[in-house]
Amino acid sequence: MSLLRLEHIGRTYDMGHVQVQALHDVSMSVERGEMVAILGPSGSGKTTMMSIIGCLDRPTQGRYELDGTDVGSLNDGALARIRSRTIGFVFQSYNLLPGTSAVDNVATPLLYQGVPRRERVKRATAELERLGLGHRLRHEPTELSGGEQQRVALARALVTQPALVLADEPTGNLAVHQGLEVLKLFQDLHDAGHTIILITHNPEVAAVAQRSVHLLDGAVVDGELAA
């Protein structure tokens, strides 16, 4: 069974007098253990895709099933629960909590799962050490390089052992060699069996994935062909 399945998904924003169709009749599915890139230029609806797949937003048309659950029928609390248990986010701008140490940043998703503090710190520390940041545990985001911040963000996405890692332009803010390092990490994760969706405008980044889904003007152009 697929981990996630989008059937005829549409997302319309009601801007008062204008209706903006950000996504139009998008269908795709991702199997467990797959690494898929969603590729498209800016304005193609990538961010909206990420929001819907990441359960930050609900589609206005179609059906979205994640890990066997029909997401469209869930309330805000249940969506938060899915984000907490099933999804790990990696953002373009890292989006680490400011003024908060690396270990506390990584421990935050566990906080919302109700894990006790001692265990949170233990697991967060282990995750950071695994990504080679054992010497940066107490550093705050401003004291870390871009590459280190993105690794902290990755550790934060992985600490809950999510079924799906969802990365939005993970190399967008990084220098080339740091970007390559991060992509290497994603490949390692894929090899370790994680399901990963990379959202990017960069075909070179998308090339790391097994297959790419091309978005243009809110619709899938040749999605399943690349498989």
Binding site: G54, L56, D76, G77, A80, R81, R83, S84, R85, F89, F91, N95, L96, L97, P98, T108, P109, Y112, Q113, R156, T160
Partner: peptide, 16 residues
Amino acid sequence: TREIGIRKALGARGRD
């Protein structure tokens, strides 16, 4: 605002 968005993405519910 952004911190709130991050926290929600990381699984915080409205009441958290």
